[in-house]
Design a protein around this nucleic acid. Structure first.
Lengths: 212, 212
DNA sequence: CCCTCCATCTGGACAGCGCTAAGATATATC
DNA sequence: GATATATCTTAGCGCTGTCCAGATGGAGGG
């Protein structure tokens, strides 16, 4: 019933590709039951293996969480890319990026929580290998900002603006669902209008440093 | 050796005031060992009582965490108040508030993490009772922003600006220690210069809505 | 073709966790 | 002084992350 080798398998022995299966099980648990239900044993259970099996693919639970977070940042990058390829006005592009960022966090709240738990534990966002051709999600923002003000502002200013934008988007992503904001959302006419209004106030798109 | 009553005790029976002692033990553990070490049993151990004793003062672990978070927000409010009483220029006041906010989070990282873990779990920042005279930390920011642009902008705009500022400060607080930012901090001449530069880019102090 | 090697997976165990129930203890009230 | 009640302890349940000894079965050399 089983062929000897299926060619496209990299490190499959008994299970096939348990590492992949574990990551997908973890994702399923996150979406279905939230971050508190994400135990190593639950992941193993979901994948149909013994509680000790994951230890042959991840050093400990933290390493599994980091792998999940890494995939999350890859997906975030894809979402940001998709959100701004069609838009050519650079300021509108920044606005779309901000909205897409927050909506990603809202669509996958449990995953987003794991992503930043790991980022804080590791003292930083995941960094792509220098030799890799495609850069990470942070550089998408930086590139867009360069389009906005690259001719007028220094590299340092662009870098600062990118950091500021990322912090703002992260802050908004974590707080946008707070009940305190509900009345204001209703007043402004919905979630996206609220997001764009807040992002405007954060000066993400003005590209103008040094207000006074 | 023990007098019958010491007058200033509110709900002391066997221990004296175990609820208070538990909160202080929790704080000590947070500062010493970080948030991962904060178990109910560890708190009880630190306070010198049995593992089940805390259940007579908190319904479950979440309720203890919420109480810790509540005290944290009180302390944050005190820090923000102290940071801006001396300053009278309203824009400079906003800048000082932002810096004080981030520095509070940096000084008590474990506490700050618990504070926002609970805020997310409860879908919002802690809300003071309407009948209470003094308002919460969020209103300190709102008041400062009213001083900046209260004459020119609507209540809605001020509210939006306050939300934007709080989100920005929170995002910066959670990410300011990322290793990626170290070189830029060095270039700008230190932590506080970095913080003020990022906050400037976030447009916290401009009070000017609607950039385009 | 077989046999050995070794990565992979299992079953069992340990300490620690949140939480509960039952009983001991000391304070407050009558 | 007796009773009631809030407080604290002891014991125990099921869960967790992690480790270890042993079973399993594909890969490569003879």
């Amino acid at each position: 019933m089983k062929t000897t080798t299926v060619a496209a398998e990299a490190k499959p022995y008994h299970h096939g590709d348990l590492r992949r299966a574990l990551l997908e099980s973890a994702d399923a648990i996150l979406e279905r039951d939230g971050p508190n239900a994400l135990s190593l044993r639950a992941v193993a259970r979901e994948a149909g293996v013994s509680p000790a099996a994951p230890y042959h693919h991840f050093k400990d639970k933290d390493e599994l969480l980091s792998a999940i977070a890494q995939e999350g940042f890859d997906r975030l990058k894809a979402a940001l890319t998709a959100a701004c390829v069609a838009e050519h006005d650079p300021r509108r592009k920044m606005s779309d990026l901000g909205v897409a960022y927050v909506k990603f966090a809202q669509s996958h709240p449990a995953l987003y929580q794991v992503m930043y738990d790991r980022a804080r534990a590791e003292d930083g966002l995941p960094q792509k290998d220098v030799h890799e051709k495609d850069h990470d999600a942070f550089h998408i923002v930086k590139d867009a900002l360069t389009e906005v003000g690259g001719n007028y502002f220094s590299e340092t200013d662009i870098h600062l603006a990118a950091i500021a934008s990322w912090c703002a988007a992260h802050g908004l992503a974590e707080m946008s669902s707070f009940v305190q904001f509900r009345p204001l959302k209703a007043e402004l006419g919905g979630e996206e209008a609220f997001l764009r209004a807040v992002l405007e106030h954060l000066g993400m798109f003005r590209g103008a440093p040094n207000p006074y």
